[in-house]
Design a protein around this nucleic acid. Sequence first.
DNA 1: CCCTGTCAGATTGTATTCAAAATACATAAT
DNA 2: ATTATGTATTTTGAATACAATCTGACAGGG
Lengths: 229, 229
Amino acid sequence: MRHRAGSAANIVPIERRPLHDELADQLRRAIIHGELRPGAKISEKDLCEQFGVSRTPIRETLKILSTEGLVSFAQNRGASVTEVTAQDIMDAFPVMGALEALAGELACANATQAQIDRLGVLQSKMVAMFKRGDRRGYFRINEQIHQLILEASCNSTLPRLIRAASAQVRRARYMANLSNERWAEAIEEHEQILKAIEARDGKLTSRLLRNHLTNKLEALKKAFLEQVD
Amino acid sequence: MRHRAGSAANIVPIERRPLHDELADQLRRAIIHGELRPGAKISEKDLCEQFGVSRTPIRETLKILSTEGLVSFAQNRGASVTEVTAQDIMDAFPVMGALEALAGELACANATQAQIDRLGVLQSKMVAMFKRGDRRGYFRINEQIHQLILEASCNSTLPRLIRAASAQVRRARYMANLSNERWAEAIEEHEQILKAIEARDGKLTSRLLRNHLTNKLEALKKAFLEQVD
DNA sequence: CCCTGTCAGATTGTATTCAAAATACATAAT
DNA sequence: ATTATGTATTTTGAATACAATCTGACAGGG
């Protein structure tokens, strides 16, 4: 627990985030989930009406998302959701792979035992989700695992970068379904990764994570080819 | 020549960049060069007066730099130049190393022969700068080389990410001087990297680039320890 | 003397307004 | 009919205006 205020229970620090922050989260989510389609024009006026705010925070938000690569600007012609070609998505995977591999390697060196234990717990939860066939739950735990590895890496640069790269990869998830075979494979890969981290074998962890991303991409390619509807 | 307008000579498309673009470039440079010190408060009003623009584009610019990690915001307390601890800078190097290594590996697979030839030319120029003792010129060519490798990698995600990571690394350059010994070493390393790319040996290129960054960091650490003034 | 509370001034966050450019539409010319 | 030109409308880019929050000084009480 981070804050303590007297003996009162459930005192939680009130937080009032700036509008651009809140807006960025919502728009980011909408883009990643595909609710805003690639290439779709983003009208500032429309957004103002939807969110009930003025153009200033909207414009600041769009600048942020633009830097993150989710939104593109055309001179005097406003913003649009960045188009992603299949190539763009494929490009994102090796980069993500390199970064996650590094995170894993560093985590082997820097993780606390508590963090490694927690990884084990999450892994079990994830397997439970798999057995239950709960895809949404699986993805949630999966993200928590990657997040924990990231934290354990104790590197201040990685989070920002991975965040910047992951958006495209996460977009991909919403464009093609996870096949059952691939799902089982992924679970198995995670099992190995966990073992490698527990053994604090940096090189192995690194290689496994890179392969994990490569396999993810291969599965995605296949799913795309089959899903020509 | 990209445009042709009748027979008139030297007709060049006029370009008017948005203010936030121009501003971002200038502020980014100022921060990287250390003209704006880490931790320094950034007053919007002051910037308005300095640049002769209103607060709107200034604020958009600050949001951009904030996403890039160069500027930090405190709730209702405005922006300041992001503090970098020695640890932060050290953290940036392995990340940068992983990304550059990937860029090199991909470049080996995807570079055109023309690009590789051009790398050779740049390498010669860089050696010339070294022999002349022209540090500024050296850094300029050095950046062009890394830029070219990046282009040759034909990956759409890498440029944005490397850009995001490189700022910290480039900041470091302005905080400690390049020793003559390290300079000579770096030239030699570049020579090897070039050879590996010419041989299109992806694995080797990758390893050399990662080491290059590691050595850069080691040299930096040493320079810092000596420079206790 | 230190702590607390209040208030003026300054600064940031957001809304509104003004200006410039792009699009849409109507009209004229070939 | 089709292209080109001129005008109106819309939308973006930037500036200004207003509101909320913070800073710091100072007064009064413990």
